[in-house]
């Protein structure tokens, strides 16, 4: 069995880079956190373990953004080609932020809150930068 990673931001990002959505679970009160926490803020326990999320959830909030971040502009998005930022409530309970793909970003009225989605790891290659993988979602 491979070594258990320390619960840090870096470990979480490494899991994302290997296309795994991992959270932490409090062994004492069973509360779950994504991104993971090393300290349970419900019961103060530090007895936490990694747990893999199913990657399934529902849209809790979203916006199709025309004036985007520098990162999204580099990915080719613009006023004419907006992208969708979303907050997803995972079936396991925690909420996470991710880009929502597979929707019509130019018609935000067609995107509905509570629509079931599943995780989609987004691979990005920007010229002159290291390739990266970010957390994203798409409708089921």
């Amino acid at each position: 069995m491979s070594e258990v990673k320390d619960i840090t931001i870096q470990s979480y990002l490494e899991f994302i880079a290997s296309k795994k959505l991992m959270g932490s679970k409090c062994k004492k009160c069973n509360e779950m956190y994504v991104p993971p926490r090393k300290l349970c803020i419900k019961c103060n326990s530090i007895d936490m373990e990694w747990i893999e999320m199913s990657g399934k959830g529902k849209i809790a909030a979203f916006s199709c953004i025309g004036v985007g971040t520098t990162f999204m502009e580099k990915k080719g998005y613009s006023m004419k080609k907006p992208y969708c930022f979303s907050v997803i409530k995972l079936d396991e309970g925690p909420m996470v932020s991710g880009q929502l793909v597979g929707v019509d970003e130019t018609k935000p009225e067609t995107i509905k809150i509570e629509t079931p989605v599943k995780v989609k790891f987004l691979e990005t290659e920007i010229k002159g930068e290291d390739p990266r993988i970010d957390l994203g979602f798409e409708p089921v």
Partner: peptide, 23 residues
């Protein structure tokens, strides 16, 4: 760390709040 890579801007965050309030 986690909102920025998802594309969050300030208007975008308040817009997401608005989407939930609309709903």
């Amino acid at each position: 760390l986690f909102e920025y890579p998802a594309g969050a801007t300030f208007p975008g965050l308040y817009a997401a709040i608005a989407s939930a309030h609309f709903h």
